[in-house]
Design a protein around this nucleic acid. Structure first.
Lengths: 195, 195
DNA sequence: GAAAAAAACTAATAAGTGTTAGTTTTGTAA
DNA sequence: TTACAAAACTAACACTTATTAGTTTTTTTC
C-alpha cells in the first residue's frame, strides 16, 4: 500500500497541489488525467479523493493562490510612498521573482484559467482585471506627474504584463542568464528602451 | 445530409482548419473534441475524415502554416537594407499585423504546440529557435554598430517576443485601442522606453 | 442518363475519463 | 489491546474520446 509522503509543514493536499501544478504545466489541464496525477503522487487515483474534492478544485486552488499573492503585492506597492516609476519597477521585479520561485503555479494560473468553472472563472477574471487596473493607475499617475511619457496606458500595461509573463520561456536558459541580469535588463528595456 | 460550405478559393480542408483554429483557441486543443468540431463545421464527426487525416494533423497544419509565415518574413527582413533598429521595428510590426489578421491560428500556434507529436514537436521548436536566433542577430548587430545599448541580447529578444505575443489580450479591447495606436505605442516602449 | 468519384451517413470499437461505493489496511489514542 | 479515524485499496459506473468499417447519398464526368 503506497503512501503520500509529506515533507514538514506540508499537508497531503499541498503535496498533491504541487504535483498537480507541475503536471498541468507540462501536459496542460485537460490533457492531464487523475490517474497520471495519482501515478506521480504515488497512489491509486481514487485515493486522491480522500484529500481533494475534484480535479477542478485543484485548478481553482492553484489559480486563486497565485491570484491573491499578486493582488496582495500590488496593494502593498500601491500604498507605499515610492515614486510612480519605482512602483512600476517594483511590479516588474515582483513578477520576475514570483516566476522564479513558483514557476509551475504561475504558469498554470496564466495558461489554464480558461478551464475554471463558473463562478470561479468570472472571479478569476475580475481579480486579473483589477490587477491590470491598479497597474494602469500607476501609469496614469506617472503621466500626470510628468514622470512618464504621454503613452497609451492600456498599451503600456499590456506590454509590461506580456513581457513579464513571457518569462516562462526563460526557464530553459536559467543557467546562461542569471536572474538578476534578466531582472535588470527587462526593467531597463521596459522603462528606458534599448535605443 | 449536411454539407461543408466552402467560400471561393477555400478547399473543404481549409474550412475545417479555420474552424478548428477557432475551436482550439477557445477551448484548447485537448479539450476540443472532433464531435464539437464537426458540429461547428455542420457535419457528423466521421465525415471530417474524408478531408483530414487526424486531429493531430489539424494542429500540425495550423502550427506549421504560421511558423513558415514568420520564418519567411524574418528572412525577408534579414536580407533587406534597413538599419538594425528598423529591422527590429519591422519584426514587431509584423507580429502585430499577423495577430490582427490571423488571430486564431497565431494563438493556437503559440499556445497549443505542446500537443504536437514527434517529430513535429521537435521541428516546430527548431523553427522557433531559429526565429529567435535571427532576431537575436539583429540585436547583436545593433549593439556592435552602437545603434543599440549594450543589453543582454537574449533578454531583449525574450522581452520583445513576449510583448508581441501578449497581444492576444488586446483582442477584447479592439474597439477602444485601434491597431495603429497599439502598434506605435508598443514599438516606442520596446525601443525607447516610457520614462 | 450512366459510371465513377467524392463526401456524407450510421454503427461500432477499444481505450480512456472523472468519480463513487464499498472494503481493507494503516496510524493514533485510550 | 481495543476502538476509531484516516487513508489506502479494488471494482465499477456512466460517459466521452478518436477513429474505422461499411453503406448510402450526392456530385462530377463523360
Amino acid at each position: 500500500m503506497a503512501k503520500i509522503v509529506t515533507g514538514k509543514n506540508h499537508s497531503k493536499k499541498e503535496v498533491i497541489l504541487k504535483k498537480a501544478a507541475t503536471l498541468f504545466k507540462t501536459k496542460s489541464f485537460s490533457a492531464s488525467s487523475m490517474r497520471e496525477l495519482a501515478d506521480v503522487v504515488g497512489v491509486e487515483a481514487p485515493s486522491l479523493y480522500n484529500h481533494i474534492g475534484s480535479k477542478s478544485e485543484l485548478l481553482q486552488d492553484i489559480c486563486f493562490k497565485i491570484g491573491s499573492q499578486f493582488t496582495e503585492q500590488i496593494e502593498q506597492i500601491s500604498t507605499s510612498d515610492k515614486s510612480t516609476v519605482a512602483k512600476i519597477e517594483a511590479v516588474i521585479r515582483f513578477h520576475i521573482e514570483m516566476m522564479a520561485e513558483n514557476f509551475d503555479e504561475v504558469y498554470v494560473a496564466n495558461h489554464e484559467w480558461k478551464h475554471l468553472n463558473e463562478p470561479y472563472l468570472t472571479d478569476f477574471l475580475n481579480i486579473r482585471r483589477n490587477y491590470e487596473k491598479s497597474l494602469m493607475g500607476f501609469i496614469e499617475e506617472g503621466i500626470t506627474k510628468n514622470e512618464i511619457k504621454a503613452v497609451n496606458p492600456y498599451v503600456t500595461v499590456l506590454t509590461i504584463l506580456s513581457a513579464v509573463r513571457g518569462l516562462e520561456f526563460w526557464q530553459r536558459n536559467k543557467k546562461n542568464v542569471p536572474l538578476h541580469v534578466l531582472e535588470n535588463d527587462m526593467v531597463n528595456q521596459l522603462l528606458y528602451g534599448i535605443v
